[in-house]
């Protein structure tokens, strides 16, 4: 970042983007406000959990820390990606840019994985355990997880379709008489292969982290319901964040394809008599528009998947009183 008179210039691999101070403060302020809002909601949700014992307090703090760090990194990467595209400072290699949502997801998962691996182990000479099975399905909210799988499936299908449709590894060709023009970036195999790998790795890593949440040691001295509630909160942060990342991936694919098809919908040719005629393909234009609208819908559904609360019965933390012990 450098200062140029009354402007702030932020450099990227493709060059610098300079804008006046007031505009800079608007962007920086918006980013800070969004991050503060997200973290504020997380901390408020954590404070609502009753923690009458020291072990419960420590467990709640540990789980909240993992979630706060992971979600903060996710939001920062996504905001950086958004501003980079808006300000024209995106990475020169489109494959890197295409994998940025997966990077955001990786940050979230890495923070949660560290949180689970460093979870306090049972101590003391007297230990207790619930004799009830516990798996990923018991701790994971169903609909965010299903939504994530839908996004992952949709991205793989779209990447496959566009790779087949593409005229080259990353473009569509506009034929106009004796000349042809390659229009891109189009999600052909050049972008499709790394993106598909990123999606598969993200889904696999998310399942692994959910398994870690399900199998981490139980909190001592609390009821089984309280312990389960804490696990479900961690799992909800993971599934909601990952489904958002995958939704952004799908939207990115649709936008990239949509812009190219929209471009093919218009081909202005200079007439001998003066003026221009549009010899583009209306069908391509409509297809491009439809893909862009679909991208917007996907983003809105993905954002809704983050903010829509779970059912009332699952949101409220139960009492943390320990269960009766049979010995």
């Amino acid at each position: 970042m450098r200062f140029n008179g009354g402007s702030v210039c932020i450099g990227g691999p493709s060059g610098s983007a300079c804008f006046p101070w007031p505009e800079f403060w608007v962007y920086a302020g918006s980013a800070t406000l969004l991050l503060a809002l997200v973290l504020g909601v997380l901390l408020w949700d954590a404070r609502r959990v009753p923690t009458p014992s020291e072990a419960a307090r420590r467990a709640n703090r540990h789980a909240t820390l993992a979630s706060v760090v992971g979600i903060a990194m996710l939001v920062i990467v996504l905001m950086w990606m958004a501003f980079a595209f808006v300000l024209g400072a995106r990475p020169t290699d489109g494959r890197v840019a295409a994998s940025l949502p997966a990077l955001a997801g990786a940050c979230l998962l890495a923070a949660q994985a560290v949180g689970q691996l460093t979870w306090p182990r049972p101590s003391g000479s007297r230990r207790e355990a619930e004799l009830a099975p516990r798996g990923v399905a018991d701790v994971t909210p169903s609909w965010p997880r299903r939504l994530g799988i839908v996004w992952a499936g949709a991205s793989l299908v779209l990447l496959g379709v566009f790779a087949l449709v593409a005229d080259g590894p990353r473009s569509l060709v506009r034929e106009a008489g004796r000349y042809s023009e390659a229009i891109g970036p189009y999600p052909g195999w050049y972008y499709g292969v790394p993106m598909a790998l990123a999606v598969l790795v993200t889904v696999g890593a998310a399942e692994l982290v959910l398994r870690m949440i399900a199998t981490r040691p139980a909190v001592a001295g609390v009821s089984a319901e309280w312990d389960l509630h804490l696990r479900r909160r961690s799992a909800a942060h993971v599934t909601r964040g990952i489904q958002l990342v995958l939704a952004i991936t799908v939207a990115g694919i649709l936008v990239a394809a949509g812009w190219v098809h929209l471009s093919l919908g218009h081909d202005y040719v200079e007439l001998a008599s003066g003026g221009f005629a549009d010899e583009g393909s209306p069908a391509q234009g409509y297809l491009g528009g439809a893909l862009l609208i679909a991208a917007l819908c996907v983003v809105l559904v993905g954002l809704a998947g983050v903010v829509i609360p779970q059912g009332r019965g699952r949101r409220k933390a139960p009492a943390a009183v320990g269960a009766t012990v049979i010995s």
Binding site: E128, L131, A132, G135, T215, P217
Partner: peptide, 15 residues
């Protein structure tokens, strides 16, 4: 009735 898996029970008991 299902019992917890070996991994889950050993993690909960810390053994």
């Amino acid at each position: 009735d299902r019992l917890p898996t070996v991994r889950v029970l050993s993690a909960d008991l810390g053994i």
